[in-house]
Design a protein around this nucleic acid. Structure first.
Lengths: 248, 248
DNA sequence: GAGTGGTCTAGACCACTGA
DNA sequence: CAGTGGTCTAGACCACTCA
């Protein structure tokens, strides 16, 4: 049979139909974890299509962690495992503007120097590495939105030494400047110390959400940043669909 | 040319070679965001393979968010955008035991009733829905690790009404009982109120990390849980590789 | 209208592995 | 060693969209 798309009322691609069929069996619980999925040949016959179309459908399910493929053993339904969620950490400017408020930022301090022990530790570099340290407040209308403390590795981004960040905040500047390929976030709660409380205009010891991010490029640490959001007003949202992940 | 795998010293699939080539151009910055990627036909000619092989390579890059495909316009390098990270929310028991401490839990309160306005709101159900509310403390050795406040929708899980959670903590029990397929997390900082402080044995107003999770099954809200971790001792870690995401 | 990606076919050979 | 998935081909038709 030559390829001819079903033009009659059908719009979903063939491989998605197959995928949906398998998905519904799995998510409904009809196929418990460990159940063997029909072989690709069987499915191809069943859906009257080429095996490659089936393969594409299953390949996508593998990425979603719904099934596991093994040669000879066939494809089996995966066991739901750790609860993995996708967390989007947005650009602060976009975040503020998305909430309908005016964005402004404010460089409090900016210093080129050699990394102290603590700075080197945070950045993940040698003591004495040339660094640019920046302290910056992000505003939403007239309310402090977040306090940013950043360390930039000047060995990785030498041009940062001459950048004054008058127009573009350091985060956005860096993002546009150097493509990074790995980031690690640490999220926790802290009580505001006196200095932080003053800058963010909050009570001393008020609970703050703190996000630390270390950004790497090919195992080369580019920048460390610590964002402190005042009070309980900042909420990170993470969503997760389908179900747990088995392959990793 | 018939298909014949290069058996000589080659091991990488063809489509991955192509993918790696494109990836390196993008991640190195040689192809800036917005740069047009050669058309699939061109790449097929260049790599001497079928267009579908190229298509598979590019399809994978789309999922990684490195490129965007548009008909007629062609494929272009995506702009790194929101920083999406994968956050693993572990089972508390596993978390405690992984840190080498002994795990124990402790049901403080357990009540079957009809959802109050606030409970209905949190769970995302109608007022008056039959619910089981549970308050539970998780311990690591002799230190309070987290306070769990949970609301279970008894319409979704009627058998929970008879469960006393003597052996298995509510979270694990539910996970094993009902397959869920959607979860939403909210993460923020709170100051401990008096009751919380007493239970967790911390200072009043101490900063706590709060994780709220609403779990759904087919748009049916199954359970709401609020986990409060004392002080700044609990850290969520999220990692992210390759780079930002544009398509979504 | 022409060029792009989106999808599909009906085969094929290969590598791996469980029976 | 036989069956499974992994990969690939050399076409094809379609839908979309930009020039």
């Amino acid at each position: 049979m030559k390829y001819s798309k079903k033009t009659i009322s059908e719009s979903l691609p063939r491989y998605q139909e197959i995928q949906n069929h398998l998905k519904s069996q799995i998510l409904s619980g009809a196929w418990a974890p460990g159940t063997k999925v029909p072989s690709e040949h069987e499915l191809a016959a069943q859906f009257d299509c080429a095996r490659m179309t089936v393969s594409k459908a299953i390949g996508s399910l593998v990425e979603k962690g719904l099934v596991v493929r093994r040669r000879r053993a066939g494809t089996v339904v995966a066991a739901p495992r750790s609860q993995e969620t996708v967390l989007e950490i947005h650009d602060i400017q976009a975040e503020v503007q998305a909430s309908g408020r005016r964005y402004r930022f404010d460089i409090q301090a900016r210093k080129v120097g050699k990394a102290t022990r603590e700075e080197a530790d945070r950045l993940g570099a040698e003591i004495g590495t040339p660094v640019l340290t920046i302290s910056c407040v992000h505003w939403a209308d007239t309310v402090p939105y977040a306090l940013e403390e950043r360390i930039i590795n000047l060995e990785a981004v030498p041009e940062a030494a001459d950048e004054m960040f008058l127009e573009v905040p350091p985060g956005s500047w860096l993002l546009a400047k150097i493509p990074w390929n790995e980031a690690e976030h640490r999220i926790f709660a802290v009580s505001a110390d006196i200095a932080t409380a003053r800058i963010l205009k909050i009570r001393r010891n008020a609970a703050c959400l703190c996000i630390e991010r270390r950004t790497r490029r090919d195992a080369y640490n580019v920048t460390y940043v610590r964002l402190i959001y005042p009070g309980d007003q900042h909420v990170l949202v993470a969503r997760f669909q389908t179900h747990g992940n088995a392959g990793r």
